[in-house]
Computed example of a mutant assay.
Amino acid sequence: MKNILCYGDSLTWGYNADGPSRHRLEDRWPSVLQAELGSAAHVIADGLNGRTTAYDDGLAGEDRNGARTLPLVLGTHSPLDLVIIMLGANDMKPWIHGNAFVSKNGMKRLAQIVRTHPYQLDAPAPKLIIVSPPPVTPTNDAEFAAAFAGAIEASVHLARHYTALAEEIGCGFFDAGSVARTTPLDGIHLDAENTRAIGQGIAPLVRATLAL
C-alpha cells in the first residue's frame, strides 16, 4: 500500500463557505482521492486554514507558514511514497505578498524540504506533485473581497508559474483550476461539487506517478 500526504490549506481542510462550516469528510478532495484509489493507497489529509507556502501570517493561533511546519508533518507521517502540495491561495492576500511569482518561490522551498528531509529509517524521499489552486473569483462578501484585494488578477498566474516550476525541478503538476471553480459566496473556497472534482481530477495523475 502506498502512503500519500495531501498538504494544503482550507481547500484541503474542507472549508465550506455556506454556513460557514466544514464539508463532510467524504466530500473533501483527499477523501475522494482515497475512494478513487481504493485499497492501493492510504491518503493522509493535512490541511490548515490560512496556510501559506512559505510566508508568515501572525493573525491566527496556529503557525500558518507551510515551510516551517512541513518538516514536522513529514516526520509524523513517514514513510511516504507521494506528497501532494496545494498551496498559494493565501499567499494572494496583500499583507502576505499577493504575487504569483513569489508563491512559485515559496512552493520551490517546499519541494526542497520534501526532497532533502532526513526521513526516519533511511526511507527514500517521496515523489512530489504540486497543485495550483483554482483562481480567486469575484464575490459580494465584503470581508473576503478586502482580505484578497488584488487576488483575482494575481491568482490566475499561479498555474503558469507552477507549471514552470514543475518542469524546472522535475515533479508532477496538476492545475486544480482545470476542474474546479471557487464559489462566489466568498471567492476563495469550494463548494462540495468542486472539491470532489479535484479529488477525481487528480486521481489519474496519482495512479500514473505511483504506477498503481
Rank of each mutant, 00 (worst) to 15 (best):
M1L: 12
G8N: 05
G19M: 07
S31H: 10
V32C: 05
S39G: 07
A45T: 02
G47V: 05
G47R: 07
T53S: 15
T53L: 13
Y55M: 14
D56G: 02
L59A: 11
L59H: 09
L59Q: 13
L59R: 11
G61R: 03
E62S: 02
E62L: 00
E62N: 03
D63Q: 06
A67Y: 01
T69A: 09
L70Y: 12
L74D: 05
G75V: 04
T76A: 15
T76M: 15
S78P: 10
V83P: 06
I84F: 08
G88L: 06
G88V: 07
K93L: 01
P94W: 00
I96V: 15
N99I: 04
A100R: 10
S103L: 13
V114N: 01
Y119Q: 07
Q120W: 04
Q120S: 13
A123Y: 07
K127C: 02
I130F: 08
V131R: 01
V131W: 00
D141T: 06
A146C: 10
G150M: 01
A154S: 08
A154D: 07
V156R: 10
H161E: 14
A164L: 14
A166W: 00
E167S: 14
E168W: 08
D175R: 09
V179I: 06
G187H: 09
G187K: 08
H189A: 09
L190I: 11
L190K: 10
N194Q: 12
A197V: 09
G199N: 04
T209N: 05
L210S: 04
A211I: 12
